[in-house]
Design a protein around this nucleic acid. Sequence first.
RNA 1: GGUGGGGUUCCCGAGUGGUCAAAGGGAUCAGACUGUAAAUCUGACGGCUCAGCCUUCGGAGGUUCAAAUCCUCCCCCCACCA
Length: 379
Amino acid sequence: MTEQKRISNALKFEVTGQCPESRARAGVVTTAHGEIETPIFMPVGTLASVKSVSVEELKSCGAQIILGNTYHLYLRPGMEVIEHMKGQHRFMNWDRPILTDSGGFQFFSLAKLAKFSDEGVSFQSHIDGSRHLFTPEKAVEIQSILGSDIMMSLDWCIGHPADKRETLEALKKTTLWAKRGVTYWQEHGAPNALFGIVQGGMYKELRALSAEQLIDLDFPGYAVGGLSVGEPTELMYEMADHTVPLLPAGKPRYVMGVGTPQNLVELVGMGVDMFDCVMPSRNARNGQLFTEKGTINISNARFRLDDAPIDETCQCDTCRNYSRAYLRHLYKTRELLAYRLNTIHNLHFYLNLMKEVRQAIRTGTYLTFKRQFYSKLQE
RNA sequence: GGUGGGGUUCCCGAGUGGUCAAAGGGAUCAGACUGUAAAUCUGACGGCUCAGCCUUCGGAGGUUCAAAUCCUCCCCCCACCA
């Protein structure tokens, strides 16, 4: 009998700073494509592209790692292209780490096209209606071909509200699939790391159960999934605050799909290391821009003659070079440049926020930072 | 000068007796967006003392219980002919 590889060895994580008065911590994750500093925000690049910006621009925004999506890339361009192009990194010319979501979220957001079973998820493509089967093994296989530095286990994400029976069923399936993913990973010797995803809806005991079952599988990192799925923010915080401490302190902890700048600052204080969210990129394309003092909608008439940058304190390429009046004009006229410049700003804002958060944790001033963050918002 | 077509709420444009403050676009204004089917979606868009009332469909008259819609005259625009 061959000795099984320990999946937890697939990724290195080192805690480099801890905030004394909260659970916030800073750290470094080492992947096949280099290190990332935590807490970190990961821009979402579903289709091997963070919409509207180039990888050069992403780097200038300070992006250290980005997301890709298994479901979307499997459908288009398809695995033949990815294999031929030797993986997602080379395909899109991004040489830093990539984390891919397993597709679990798509089976939630495209639920009418998906059918769940022990085997996996059979679904119809949202593009052409063709039928496909995703198993936990296949999810790992596809992500290996994509060359993801961090792969996500196939999970069953449910919305809010959901009754306990339904939540438990999704949780059980998520654990079963996690086990099968780990087994597949061990049998095929994938070099990529695989994270487990805690489910359990808004039930604390189910969150605990899910965490416990996944910890047994000894993943190198853990995600908390199924948050920000329609529940009030306070409930989301409550669930995160309950779940995150149950996860191993020596491994990265990732809250999936969250959130607003305030969400990130709060969750960091609960010990979360990694985040992703479409908000900065999508909202940029929809005209909502983030500033220290809160969000603005660049299409508002009050910016028509405004010669100031989006945010006076921002050092992004957009703020250093362009006025609100110009950005409003670009947005109102649907000039393509609007999407790009807005996205650069929002991503820079998020990434810079995390940079400041890391700095504050390392210097033991996280709580002060948090206070200042909120007081600026109120100005 | 003749013949034909037309002037509708910010713009384009439906509507040809009541169900019309008037379809549909656009523009404008505001909002939403949380592991991206999203450069998307929603709402407002004549005025007011707002479940009602007032003003509006080139202008002025008229017919009718009732007119953006029918009649008369006038003004303006477009096409073709001379």
